[in-house]
């Protein structure tokens, strides 16, 4: 488990001081994947370096399994770093070492005997599904395979905490999916606390249990991913699952924006809503995900002129939040907007 308390990092001093991280507070539970997402320059890489102790925080603390890491001497730091596995962006492999030799690096530094190291490397290669690639050099591996080697190396010393710093950035969607699946598997099997730092919203949705948005050194919003997605008023929730382009409603219909706010939305809600309102429901567009076994997401539907209050009430009964689509929703969703374009924050 990682706890970050009042973490502040200031570069420079006096008038030229720049506060990169300002009083961050969050914690990552055991067997939880906690994503920190934010644009470039938000302080993500500084946060990563403070957590794996490559940078000392100006104030505040990083506590791993009850041990405060921010007050250690240089020698203690080196030992403490071994308890945190770090997965770097894909360029982090030694080009002159094979996959097995790269994984063995932390074991070599620790002075593990050759036989023990070999055994552990074998286990790790199997764990990440690369047993047949042990003797391959990084340039002979695909981006996804290189990142698997990076994950295996981070796990070499059996850490309880894993820090993934832009671990899927620069990978193609299929490789990203396989890496996030591997991280989730490791989280469950080994009970790892994983801090996943990224700028990619889509990856957060794939991998994270909880998420915090870092902007200008502050955490502006955070929570469990499902909760944020079910909260129709959450900007972060809407960015995690942005509305995709939808069809315009027929002339006699109005467009409604419907979001899942409960885990118990019946899967035939379109029919049920139509029956309850005695009016057909046209499905114009939808973006639905299954997270933790429950469906979350939103849809745009077209409804014949009906009592707005009745629509909202009937939707609520089904576990849905319905709002007449606002002008800006229509602008960003019905016009041929580029896929993935973020909605303006309300």
């Amino acid at each position: 488990m990682i706890t970050v308390e009042k973490l502040t990092k200031v570069y420079g001093n006096g008038d030229s001081a720049v506060t990169v991280l300002d009083n961050l507070d969050f914690s990552v539970q055991q067997a939880e994947i906690f994503a920190v997402v934010g644009p470039s320059g938000a302080g993500k890489s500084t946060l990563a370096q403070c957590v794996n102790l490559l940078e000392r925080p100006t104030s505040g603390s990083v506590i791993v399994n009850g041990e405060n890491l921010s007050q250690l001497t240089e020698a203690q730091l080196r030992a403490a770093r071994r308890r945190i596995g770090t997965v770097f962006q894909s360029d982090g492999l030694f080009s002159r070492r094979t996959a097995a030799e790269n994984i063995s690096l932390p074991l070599d530094y620790l002075g593990v005997t050759r036989a023990d190291a070999k055994k552990r490397v074998g286990e790790l290669l199997e764990r990440v599904g690369l047993s047949s690639h042990a003797k391959h050099y990084p340039h002979q591996l695909s981006g996804g395979q290189r990142q698997r080697v990076g994950i295996a190396r981070a796990l070499a010393l059996k850490p309880t905490v894993l820090l993934a710093d832009e671990a899927t950035s620069g990978l193609d969607p299929a490789s990203t999916a396989s890496i996030t699946a591997l991280l989730k598997e490791l989280r469950t099997d080994l009970g790892l606390s994983i801090l996943f730092i990224t700028h990619e919203m889509e990856t957060v949705l794939q991998v994270a249990d909880s998420v915090a948005r870092l902007d200008n050194g502050h955490i502006v919003e955070s929570g469990r991913v499902v909760d944020l997605l079910r909260d129709a008023s959450s900007p972060l929730g809407r960015d995690l699952n942005p509305a995709k382009p939808a069809l315009p409603a027929a002339p006699d219909e109005t467009t409604w924006f419907v979001s899942y706010t409960s885990a118990h939305v019946p899967s035939d809600w379109v029919t049920r809503l139509g029956e309850a309102l005695s009016s057909p429901v046209s499905l114009l567009g939808a973006s639905i995900e299954t997270i933790e076994g429950a469906v979350v997401g939103h849809a745009q539907v077209g409804l014949r002129a009906a009592n707005a209050e009745a629509v909202i009430r009937q939707a609520q009964k089904l576990g849905l939040d319905a709002r007449p689509a606002a002008a800006h929703d229509l602008a960003s969703t019905t016009v041929a907007a580029p896929a993935g374009q973020k909605e303006p924050v309300a």
Partner: peptide, 20 residues
């Protein structure tokens, strides 16, 4: 970035110079 990797893997300065 390789020096960072070596540091995060628990290498001493001497080990980092020799390997990374």
């Amino acid at each position: 970035s390789l020096v960072k990797v070596a540091k995060a893997s628990g290498g001493s300065s001497f080990q980092i110079i020799c390997t990374a």
